[in-house]
């Protein structure tokens, strides 16, 4: 059995913990604070997941999911993640991350910035485009799921790691659509047709194909 570490115990992190435990993974989840702060929440909402420190979540996991505000990724000790696969589920959200011009550059995928920081890990972008309540409702492991299986897009540079992530997402109860490079992750970012998509594989593929990088509308900062 693989162990999944989740950094971020908010709306997305907890939802993924629920799904991952249902899928049979061992789950270690952490916020930036003392695990005490989230124990009760985890006990009730994802009872078989374990609330731990972020150091433990990193050290003891086979795959690490980043489910925290994008502007916080440099708070993670990159030495400790060396050699691991990182699933980057983060998006630039100005209300949370502030006005960050470097994250607004429409020619760079934010996951490439994350990869540049985690030099010695393999960053795969996935689980970023579907809202947390849709993830909860639509996973085939959930009793509210639609008969029509929904798809999650994955973008990355390394076949082997993509396949690992693909297996996890399939185990989570979703189909997958694989994009050839991490750079292509740009087609999944806020402002693209795929952002927010809660659709089946063929439709997601079509949305991604019609996206012209650089021409989509990013979330406004007003």
């Amino acid at each position: 059995m693989q162990t999944i570490g989740i950094l971020g115990a908010g709306k997305l992190g907890i939802t993924l913990a629920q799904i991952a435990t249902k899928a049979g993974y061992q789950v270690l989840i952490a916020s930036s604070k003392d695990p005490q702060a989230i124990t009760l929440t985890i006990e009730v909402l994802a009872p078989t997941a374990q609330a731990v420190t972020s150091a433990t979540a990193i050290a003891k996991s086979d795959v690490l999911i980043l489910a925290m505000p994008l502007s916080h990724y440099k708070q993670v000790n990159r030495q400790a993640v060396k050699g691991k696969i990182i699933i980057d589920a983060m998006n630039y959200w100005w209300e949370v991350d502030g006005n960050r011009p470097e994250l607004l550059d429409k020619t760079i995928s934010t996951s490439e910035l994350v990869q540049a920081y985690f030099k010695e890990s393999i960053v795969i972008k996935a689980l970023n485009h579907m809202g947390y309540h849709d993830l909860a409702d639509e996973s085939l492991l959930s009793d509210t799921a639609n008969p029509l299986k929904k798809a999650i897009a994955i973008a990355g540079n390394q076949r082997k790691s993509i396949n690992v992530v693909k297996k996890i997402i399939q185990a989570f109860g979703f189909d997958t659509v694989v994009l050839a490079t991490l750079h292509d992750g740009i087609r999944l970012q806020p402002g693209t047709p795929a952002f927010g998509a809660n659709v089946a594989e063929a439709e997601l593929r079509a949305m991604i194909a019609t996206t012209i990088p650089g021409e989509f509308q990013l979330g406004q900062h007003n």
């Binding site: 998006n91 959200w93 806020p190 047709p193 795929a194 952002f195 927010g196 406004q220």
Partner: peptide, 17 residues
């Protein structure tokens, strides 16, 4: 509101659901 946050529009299928 979705546009301001970068979400795509609600489809008819979603609306019906």
């Amino acid at each position: 509101l979705g546009r301001e946050r970068g979400w795509s529009a609600m489809s008819k299928a979603q609306f019906d659901r």
